[in-house]
Amino acid sequence: MTGPEPHPAQAPAPSLPHRAGRVWAHVGQPFHEDACDFLVIGAGRMGAACALYLRQLAPGRSLLLVEEGGLPNEEGATILAPGVWTAHDIPAGYGAQAEWTREQLLGALGSGKALEVETRPLVELFPPGTDAFPDLLPTPDALASAPDALALLDPARLPLARTDPRALTYRPGSVSLLAAQQAISLGAGLLLNTRAELVPGGVRLHRLTVTNTHQIVVHETRQVRAGVVIVAAGAAGPLLVEQGLGLHTRHGRAYRQFPRLNLPSGPHTPALRTGGLTLRPQNGGYTLVPAIHHRDPHGYQPGGGSLTGVPTGLRREVLEDLVGLMDAVPALAGGGLELGRSSADVPGAWLALPGGRPDAPPQAEELAPGLHLLLGGPLADTLGLAAAHGLAAHLARLG
């Protein structure tokens, strides 16, 4: 399950009518389930999509989707993911999976329901002397219809560009929500505000509640047997496996922040990328998506850095990247960049790195019989849905 899968076929519609599943949103709703065929930990984009595809491909088998927070979880990586599909991010051999993911986004995961997906070009910018790509254009030509984007940078330092006119921007949190809703309509159960702990043969579930002093406590604990457990908890997934079952994994994680650049963008402004930094037009400004250079060591706690001695909310690695690009993109040196005073002021989340590599595609791995780890990682925007479908199809074939 680590290499590219064949082009996934469109998931067939269930042939039999289904009774809608159930949602347990809080501890006031009694939960008595003690067994299921499939149990998915994590209702982010990867977990919710895998749950949906399992309900489509194996409609006769029961499924429980478990999420520690709400839907979508506001502290998870899915809700902060950049949501940029681009052909520029497709590794060799993954073209079919990327195109299928694009079709699923435009078709709202095959349901035809509306999802806010915009066809917004991505323009990648390069310094003088770049000849790695045959389709390079002069930057002023590539951005002729987007003067607001052209005003952010210095064309003399970034004179060359290539454009992906088929790029999409979307909200991964909306994908997660829609996939979970569809899975429930096809009979899946969803258990929210529940922390999962892996145990042999299933999962121990700790249902959480908030006291009147705003403390999160365990209200009750219940063990559920599961034929197959899919861990799709993002960067926390490998830790769940190692802590619960003692199985070592080779995967890593990195902390990614998303600073805000408060300069005008419009509905036709393309997404920009240079030096690994993506500037995604969003909410009238730009969300900055820094490059990921390496995994963060175990035990690392994100903290803010300092710029000319002044404390900021951007960690040192992000600051170094932005300072290195300020000559080519002068807008980064202006007052539009939100630095914050501590890391709490700049949105960020832990991101899984499949195989510990920043450039690795999404991955599904069988760690033990009946236990699968599903990781999205940095390329989840372009390949994540195909990876989730590939695992669901594999499990459905096993019967």
Rank of each mutant, 00 (worst) to 15 (best):
T213E: 15
T86M: 07
H298Y: 12
L158F: 02
D296P: 03
L158I: 04
G348T: 00
L125E: 00
A146P: 10
T312E: 04
A271S: 08
E68D: 07
F258L: 07
L277N: 00
Q257W: 02
Q223G: 12
A352K: 10
H214N: 11
L191K: 04
G95D: 05
D381R: 09
P347R: 04
G275F: 13
P238I: 02
R120A: 09
Q363Y: 15
D141G: 06
H26Y: 15
G60Q: 15
G112W: 04
L374K: 05
I90N: 05
G252R: 01
A291S: 15
P361C: 10
P17V: 11
T278G: 02
T312R: 07
A183G: 10
L307D: 05
A333E: 02
A236W: 13
G356Y: 03
A144Q: 08
H206N: 14
D381C: 14
S111N: 06
V231Y: 06
P6W: 06
V199G: 04
G189F: 03
E366P: 08
T213D: 14
G246N: 12
H372M: 06
G355F: 14
L57V: 13
A196L: 07
S343N: 14
V318I: 13
L52G: 11
R162D: 08
P82Q: 12
W85F: 06
P8W: 11
D135T: 13
K113H: 13
T2E: 07
Q29E: 12
R19F: 14
G384M: 01
P330C: 04
G42L: 02
H219L: 08
V224E: 08
L373K: 05
L109N: 06
E197C: 05
D135R: 15
A328C: 09
I79V: 14
H294L: 10
T287H: 07
G305D: 13
Q182L: 05
G377T: 00
N212F: 09
A132N: 08
F38Q: 12
A291D: 08
L80F: 01
A149Y: 03
S111W: 02
A386I: 11
F133N: 03
G110M: 12
Y300S: 05
S306F: 10
T194P: 01
R341C: 09
L374D: 04
A9K: 12
A9T: 08
L125M: 09
G189E: 08
T278K: 00
A156R: 11
P270Y: 01
T78Q: 03
V117N: 07
I216V: 13
L39F: 05
L39Y: 02
M1D: 05
L71T: 07
S306K: 13
L375N: 01
E242F: 11
L351A: 04
A144G: 01
P267L: 10
G299C: 03
L247Q: 03
G60A: 15
Y170F: 11
V241T: 13
D359A: 14
R316H: 12
G355M: 13
S62Y: 01
G370V: 04
A380T: 01
L80N: 10
E103I: 12
P127S: 00
V329E: 00
P281A: 01
G336F: 05
G201Y: 15
L57P: 10
P17L: 11
R162V: 06
A13E: 11
A196D: 08
V318G: 15
A108F: 00
H251G: 02
L208Q: 03
Q97A: 07
Q182M: 15
W100R: 09
